[in-house]
Design a protein around this nucleic acid. Sequence first.
DNA 1: CTAGTCCACTGGTCAGACCAGTTGCTCTCC
DNA 2: GGAGAGCAACTGGTCTGACCAGTGGACTAG
Lengths: 248, 248
Amino acid sequence: MQFSPVQPVRAYQRIVEQVEDALARGELVPGQRLPSERELVAQFAVSRSTVREALRVLESNGVVRSRPGDPNGPEILPFSQVALRKQMVRLARVEEVTLSELIGFRMIMDGAAIQVASRLRTPEELDELEQTLVAMRTAIDVDFDAFSQADLAFHELIARISRNSLIQTCNEVVRGVVLGLISDKIAHAPNSRALMLESLHHHAEVVDAIRTGNGNAAARLARQNMFDYYAGYVPDSEQETLRALIEE
Amino acid sequence: MQFSPVQPVRAYQRIVEQVEDALARGELVPGQRLPSERELVAQFAVSRSTVREALRVLESNGVVRSRPGDPNGPEILPFSQVALRKQMVRLARVEEVTLSELIGFRMIMDGAAIQVASRLRTPEELDELEQTLVAMRTAIDVDFDAFSQADLAFHELIARISRNSLIQTCNEVVRGVVLGLISDKIAHAPNSRALMLESLHHHAEVVDAIRTGNGNAAARLARQNMFDYYAGYVPDSEQETLRALIEE
DNA sequence: CTAGTCCACTGGTCAGACCAGTTGCTCTCC
DNA sequence: GGAGAGCAACTGGTCTGACCAGTGGACTAG
């Protein structure tokens, strides 16, 4: 007879589990309301502190929202990847993670999004992509921040067209972290305008490949462009892993 | 003069922010301890309930761990795959993330790991890969669990050879989540042994491509194998996004 | 030296009080 | 009749204080 180690489970955790189980079974759906805290105290037969601690956890997971004075009780929120995103951010910000790892990961994510988008995109979505190119062209004459915003819109659209929310979330996170690390260097580069123009040209090439539905070519182009753009910020000794992602 | 809408910030949220800011600035590092709850009450000049609600949020974010009776106060945690995995599992349960999205993500991660590993692998690492194939061959005659373990060792080694911790982590997490969702179906398939043999054959093909340093071919092979293996578990209407990842 | 007990701390939960915010209803004034 | 003010009953946010189980270290007895 073999026993295994036991672990006490806190009362508030039990409440969290019950609520999430009810969500998984469809017995609670977004838009609905939980009972008030005082009602939950009665139903769960615990103190109000315990209920509130459970609600803090659920809130942090993006499951519910509480508003003071709201007479209808805590609201179930639409499902979102807020908490997953938080964990991805924590992963990306681990101290030992290098810039080259982040850039490599971004190349993979962007490349994959573009590859899938090339196959799945509708004509309307292709039009939207063209519009983002126009916006990028306009933003060049404003400033680097405006160009970054337009660039962001381009990549967010690509990720949306890929219809994979994990790609979307990872892409957003790693793009944000990479940009946070080297944004100053890029914005203050002496040839900033030239870089923006070249970047726009590359984006247009990618859109062309997407238009023709050539996923592999589009992904390879995008990865090559990212390598060219970012390799200068990475130590020579770490570029090998990035090169592996652009070979034919 | 333009004013913007204001939003009250709760006291416990302020505490969460202060702790997370201190982490971001490196003033707190994993392994360190926060002061005890009663000490935090004094430092933040709030009630103990408020401190505890903040700690529930931080705990839910994977930032700290509290143990009853621990005389050293709440512990700062390093990033952990467990928390990332937990969030992915939550999303899968409510179908905010579909099986096809998870499988697609896995194809991308595994494919990328194999592509980079093809370039970076050392002769010693290639030997290690061969050993995992031997272990898989042996495990077929044991049972599906043993084969799964050997399969896991293969993929973990590949991810390690890729020298990208983001790929490693995401790969491990998503593999665990996918396997958790469909493991029962696979283990009880009537042709389980045939599936394991075929899977072993595919892994050997991948290792061959890695040996010759052909990253693109290895990655494509791996993604094709995963598509063949998993496509049956995905609705027809969602297979298009997976097909995009295996086209030439 | 080892085992047991005690003490001072830790975190988990409870009960009750008070406060600010929200909503709906009623009353008064124009 | 319509608009505004006031009130009551609720909501969630925070506070205070008490009690309990768990942990580790110090002390004592064998």
